[in-house]
Amino acid sequence: MINHDSQLKLQAYLDGELSAKETAEVQNWIATDQDAQLLLAELQNTNAALVGFEAEIKLPETREFFWSKIQREIESQEKASARVSARPFSLGAWLQRHLVPVSGTAMAILVLLLVVQVAPSKNQVGEMELSSGDVGAVTFRNESEKMTLVWFYDKADSGFTESDSLASLDQE
């Protein structure tokens, strides 16, 4: 009985995947082992049976019909692509694409700061205080896009105020 590693080595020999040294070793083995000769012959017969198999398989559609489907699909995708690139600028879509990830990050940072405040480390030297009075929030609602944005900021560190933010949004 040939062990599995040797079986795979015999197959690799058949497929030309061995180094020159390994090839010589396998050739010596085959010359003296009848089981190896039989297995090699079986693998070779299977390969031989498959030769030319795919050449007999033909597409079951006429050239014209098959091409018409491809052409139609190409044209349809090109039209769709052209429509997307010609779409007018939408403030709501722009805000959704650019500001939502930023506000999400801001929210995560805020939550992190609150957690730090609630569970301070014993080794903490200073203290960080953050109360709801220090945090400002601006809300923007776009009815046509059915979207609401909430922007948080630190009142002490920023010259940014609610009236500023609303004014800037109005301008846009």
Binding site: E54, I57, K58, L59, P60, R63, W67, I70
Partner: peptide, 24 residues
Amino acid sequence: LVARHRDKIYARAFSMMRNEEEAV
């Protein structure tokens, strides 16, 4: 190019999928 290679491409897809409609 499609006309030249269509049978070979189909044969490969059919061999793998074993389903005519899916291969097409």
